[in-house]
Design a protein around this nucleic acid. Structure first.
Lengths: 233, 233
DNA sequence: CAGTTGACACGAACAGTGTTCGTCCGTAGA
DNA sequence: TCTACGGACGAACACTGTTCGTGTCAACTG
């Protein structure tokens, strides 16, 4: 009972606590951290994912997070693990192996695009994470069922996952250029105009085929690339 | 002459300046900044590339750099521009277009690998930079000479450059894991051991072909992927 | 030759980052 | 009932990119 020297503020806080004594502040868990972090990335992009901002969204300080997550890097790993868990891998169907492969990669792509810039973390954590290994396993099953030899299959999967990450990183940067205007170009017509502006003497092919260089509606280019990879197997 | 209140330190500095009055401090230029930055990245990795550290290496403070470089992002762009300028694109030879394509991509890969982690900047600045456009132009010439249609050529180039960046980013992170030991695995045998440790029930294919998953000496996988892309054209 | 101008260098500061230390406290076990 | 322990967290450290204002030197101008 040595708290006889409590300040006025503490006293007021104690009185205020009388109102809601039962609804104890919900404890911080890894799940709550991950959920909050994902919401933050979804609305403000990966660059805004900060220990401080996650903590603030949880109504606490940054130090509180380190009891549940070793690192910012560890948090990133958790995020891409969660995203990977959202990808469902079908049971291999020998006749449709190409379509199945593209479909799984497309799921991953959509997950990454939903949380802009998070693929940067995926590039860092690729091989270590258990949840991404589940996807690798699934893709391997699909390719093996399609009659592809193990080694080319493994290498093609690696290339495809790398491509998915790079594709989504680039797509996110194009849409979310930090501050709407600042030397970064977003508009596609603008890019086309700049390509046409190049000196024909030094960039003959680029100028001539400028329209093809940045063409492709939706994810046409994405699927084109994957088909390219698969057709070579 | 209102400097009569100079402190003792200033006085000492003035005396010291008598020794070398002619060798005026070399002015800061964009070239010196780029050279210093590249040396820094080469020895300590892209994560160590800091305005402050570049400035310190030049014997000044960070504010001095902003007279020559708008941003850290602008500096990054300059760096990958310089690296791109080191890549020499051959004049297209119709019969050897595949080899030429792979060779150019290999040059770019080696540039990126020499400066660990710098490919992260390449992923961000890809389409805007003039020097990388020179490479795109060269690759386009090679593919067109090989008889590839413009649109597939353009898309394949995009995919290949994306893959080069992703490949080098991942390779750099594997070699340079921030702090030698900290949940990140470097050793290849270690990765293999961990893959074999997986439960066979859930990861049958991964366990069975673990040795193929991370096989490939040198840049075998790199060239395999590029060949895959090219064979589909 | 004297004087002004303008570009560059830079010290100091601001707002923000990841991470750690030490303290508090509430709950569970003895 | 007392104790130990693990989570919560305030404060601080060492950084980051960037800006403001001041200084200082060079070259052009009258």
């Amino acid at each position: 009972m040595k708290r006889k020297s409590s300040s006025r503020e503490e006293w007021a806080a104690q009185i205020a606590a009388l109102d809601a004594p039962v609804v104890r502040k919900e404890p911080i868990t890894v799940d709550r951290i991950v959920t909050t972090a994902l919401a933050l990335v979804e609305t403000e992009g990966f660059a805004a994912l900060t220990m401080r901002r996650v903590a603030a969204a949880l109504g606490t300080g940054p130090a509180s997070l380190y009891a549940h997550v070793r690192n910012k890097a560890a948090l990133d790993d958790l995020l891409i693990g969660t995203l990977s868990r959202n990808v469902s891998v079908p049971t291999p169907h020998a006749a449709r192996w190409r379509a199945q492969f593209v479909e799984v990669c497309g799921q991953l792509r959509d997950q990454f695009l939903r949380y802009p810039g998070i693929a940067q973390a995926a590039l860092a954590a690729a091989p270590a994470n258990l949840d991404t290994l589940r996807i690798t396993e699934g893709l391997l099953g699909i390719l093996l069922a399609g009659g592809v030899a193990p080694k080319p299959a493994a290498w093609a999967i690696d290339a495809a996952l790398l491509y998915v990450s790079a594709y989504t990183v680039e797509a996110s940067l194009r849409r979310h250029p930090d501050r709407a205007e600042d030397s970064r170009v977003v508009d596609r017509d603008e890019i086309l105009a700049r390509l046409r502006m190049l000196p024909v003497s030094r960039f003959p092919h680029t100028v001539e085929h400028a329209d093809k260089l940045n063409s492709g509606e939706g994810h046409e280019r994405f699927e084109f690339t994957l088909q390219l990879l698969l057709n070579g197997l």
